[in-house]
Structures are given as structure tokens and as C-alpha cells.
Write a protein that binds this DNA or RNA. Structure first.
Lengths: 137, 137
DNA sequence: GTATATCTCTACTTGTTTGGTAGACAAACG
DNA sequence: CGTTTGTCTACCAAACAAGTAGAGATATAC
């Protein structure tokens, strides 16, 4: 299960994707429309900005906007920023790899299965973008 | 990422699958061979027994054994017992479903994507069994 | 029937993560 | 200047993760 934080982040990006091209959107507006605690959302959007998913403008008329067209940001990228590894085990993670303390990965049965699920999940999250998160009318 | 607990549980079941048919296996033996803290492992095996994945025998010559042939126990079943939902969100879980507080699932973009990843993961974890966890020589 | 081996159960601990909240600060704009 | 907005630091309570300790219950062997 993903954390509320990741869930909120994805929902917020979905909203921003729907507003793309219309200028900056207020944190408060996103929070209200998507039912996210505003101060919590603040920190999430900031984190996404620091990883170049979002841009911001201060002062009147300010707010947040996507740093790139919605179809350019994969869900995998967002997931890794907020939630961390997509794989179920460190020893099968591509971006957060850590060696298994004792088991030999070449002969580990668990390793093999976890690589399969990682690839299956990745195939979807790398292909899908925040454009796909825009809610239908 | 799955918890150490789930990881330990799967490793232990993989070991028991390799020993299937040879009678009860000591907790201590599994713990040593798989490098799992013994007291921690105890509670995991007990939990698996309470969900009918394992059987046990007390006293001399006792230990734990699989309640069914290794190919009969899917990884999905084990995962759900130890780790919980396989889906990334409660609102797309088959076995632990919980309604989204506010979003309308029919029109929610996130919902759609999460169902896809759930199905992709499930396709593997339902098909694979603890027989697949047996380490190669 | 006593000793020993083995699983079972309850309770605790310690550290980290989750899901927030409060409030000062800094930049932009009018 | 003052208002509007994002930024940053600090704090907090509750839950969870990962273990540890030790007494209890049962089965087997002698």
C-alpha cells in the first residue's frame, strides 16, 4: 500500500494536469478540490518542485504549475520521489538497489519472483503519466 | 517495499518447500539456514499456522511442516496473511476493499491506473507458489 | 511420572515512519 | 508600503516495525 502522502501527491498532480496551460494554481485550490490537508499538501508540492516536477510562482497571481506537459511526467518518476522504491525488495530495485545481506541473488527463488512483479508494475508506471490521472467528467 | 516480516515468512516457506515430505523441521533450523532472528521467526510461523498454511508438532521430533504440497500455496495467499493488501490503495483492493472517502471511483484517474498495477501484480502472485521459492542449488 | 524437547503465548522495548499542525520567513506584486 | 503567495523549521501524537524475554503448554522418551 502506498502512503497517504503519495496518494495526495498523485491526486494533486492529476488536478494540475487538468489545469495545464491555465497558469499557476493555488495550493489552497488544489487542497480544497482534492480534499487534502493544506499544510500537508504544501510540503508534498515543495518536494515535487525540488525534484523538478513542478514550478512555482510567489506573490499575487502565484501558485504551482507543472514543469512539463502532463504526458511527459511518468507515474514511476513521481512514485520514486514521494514513496521511494517501486520494487518490493531492495535487492531487486533498479533505482534503490541494495545487496541482500546473505542470500545469493543468482540462486534465490524469492529474488526471481520479485523481479517479475517489479517488471510488471514498472511496465505500467513507466508508460502511464500524470495525464492519465485527470479525472473523467 | 514489503516488510522484513513478510520477507522472512516467504524465505522460511521456501525452505520448508525444499524440505517437503521429510517430516517436521525445527524453527531453529529454519532460522539458522535462512538467517532469521529465531524469536521473530517463531511468531511468523505461528501466524502462518493459524491461517492453515503450516502445521506443527510439539515435543521431540516436532517442528513445522507445510499443510499442503508446495505448489498448492500461492504467494498471493501468503502475502495477504503477513503483509496485507496487495493493491496499492484500499479502494482498488479485492480482499481488503475500503471505499475512497471522497473521490468517485468511476471517474477517478488514479483508481484506473491502480487497478491495472494490481492486476499485473496479482497475475504473478496468484500463479506463483512457494514451490517457486525453493533456491536453486 | 519425570525430564527434556519443542511449539505457544503474552508482554515489553526501542526506534522509525506516518500524517499531520503551527508559526515565522521570504519573495513578488500592486 | 502591505498583501498575497510560496518556503522553511520545528514540533507532535499515534501507529508500526523489528525485535527480545520469559513463562506456559504439550508431546515424547526414558
Amino acid at each position: 500500500m502506498i502512503s497517504k502522502k503519495t496518494q495526495y501527491g498523485l491526486k494533486a498532480l492529476g488536478y494540475l494536469a487538468g489545469q495545464y496551460g491555465k497558469g499557476p494554481v493555488l495550493i489552497a485550490e488544489i487542497a480544497e478540490k482534492k480534499n487534502i490537508p493544506i499544510k500537508f499538501l504544501e510540503s508534498i508540492l515543495l518536494q515535487l518542485k525540488q525534484h523538478n516536477i513542478l514550478e512555482s510562482k510567489k506573490g499575487k497571481g502565484g501558485g504551482y504549475l507543472l514543469a512539463a506537459p502532463p504526458k511527459r511526467t511518468s507515474l514511476a518518476a513521481v512514485y520514486r520521489i514521494i514513496e521511494g522504491p517501486i520494487a518490493m525488495l531492495p535487492c531487486v530495485s533498479l533505482n534503490f538497489y541494495q545487496k541482500c545481506s546473505d542470500c545469493n541473488e543468482k540462486h534465490c527463488g524469492l529474488n526471481r519472483v520479485m523481479i517479475m512483479t517489479r517488471d510488471a508494475t514498472l511496465k505500467i508506471l513507466e508508460k502511464r503519466t500524470i495525464y492519465d490521472l485527470i479525472d473523467e467528467p
